[in-house]
């Protein structure tokens, strides 16, 4: 059994963002890390490898900055790693990225395809569902628990106000939500061992056939205005502080009293 797990390298969520003159986000000198949602998927895949002896292949797309993401996945226990080189960042178009990843999943003969239900940076939340549609495979989103019973993937998936139990047959695509597995910290030994492993490289041009619909989307980015911080309420006693807070809510903010 072979699991392909897609991982994304993202800017640290704590990063202070800025734009260059062309209106693009400045990526240089930002701290890059493996996306948290990718990491949940990698962890569960590696657990399945340890439980059932599967092969786990980590795959990423991007420029050379994306390589540490698959190295990290290797040090967590993945068996192999692929980097699809995309120096011009063509795969920032989700449709194109899905095409490429679907082709790679086929190439590595994946029985199970895993990845995050979204990424913490762009949060477009669509690459994995698109991969499923391209491959004609069943997909479960926002999975918080999964186990295998033969060819059946039994999942618990987050729905609006609760949890749905959804089963699908392999081959399938599964999207990790926070909670699926607690990612391990690789040991120094794991990290050292990983350095010796070869990362297979491919070029995005080998897979991508055409630019799909989102390429027509005209998107302009801007920084969201930060919330203005208010005031810490001071007072002689806590009782006075709370009293002042309640007065402020009523008289200044005009909330809670239907005003």
């Amino acid at each position: 059994m072979r699991i392909a797990v897609f991982v994304k390298q993202v800017m640290d969520p704590e990063a202070v963002l800025a734009f260059d003159e062309s209106g693009a986000l400045v990526q240089n000198e930002q701290n890059l890390i493996i996306d948290a949602y990718s990491e949940y998927a990698v962890e569960r895949a590696v657990q399945l490898k340890e439980e059932l002896g599967f092969e786990v292949i980590a795959v990423t797309i991007g420029d050379e900055n994306s390589i540490p993401a698959v190295r990290h996945a290797l040090s967590m226990g993945c068996s192999e790693a692929y980097q699809v080189s995309d120096p011009d960042q063509l795969c920032t178009i989700p449709e194109l990225k899905a095409q490429v990843l679907a082709a790679v999943a086929k190439e590595v003969s994946a029985d199970l395809v895993m990845g995050g239900c979204m990424s913490a940076d762009t949060g477009r939340a669509q690459v994995m569902p698109r991969v499923a549609e391209i491959l004609g495979l069943p997909h479960v989103n926002k999975v918080v628990e999964m186990r295998l019973e033969g060819n059946l993937v039994c999942t618990k998936s987050e729905v609006n106000d609760g949890i749905a139990e959804i089963d699908v047959q392999l081959p399938a695509v599964i999207c990790a939500q926070e909670g699926l597995a607690e990612p391990r910290y690789p040991s120094m030994w794991d990290i050292m061992q990983t350095r010796k492993k070869t990362i297979q490289t491919r070029s995005v041009n080998e897979y991508a056939t055409s630019c799909a619909s989102t390429s027509h989307l005209a998107v302009v980015l801007r920084l969201k205005e930060a919330r203005k911080s208010g005031s810490i309420i001071e007072g002689e006693t806590l009782s006075e502080v709370v009293q002042k807070a309640v007065s402020a809510l009523r008289d200044e903010a005009k909330v809670l009293w239907g005003a």
């Binding site: 969520p13 913490a120 940076d121 949060g123 989307l217 005209a218 998107v219 302009v220 980015l221 969201k224």
Partner: peptide, 14 residues
Amino acid sequence: ESYSGKIIERVSIT
């Protein structure tokens, strides 16, 4: 919204 709510993406409809 993207980037943990730090960025607004404005998408024109064509």
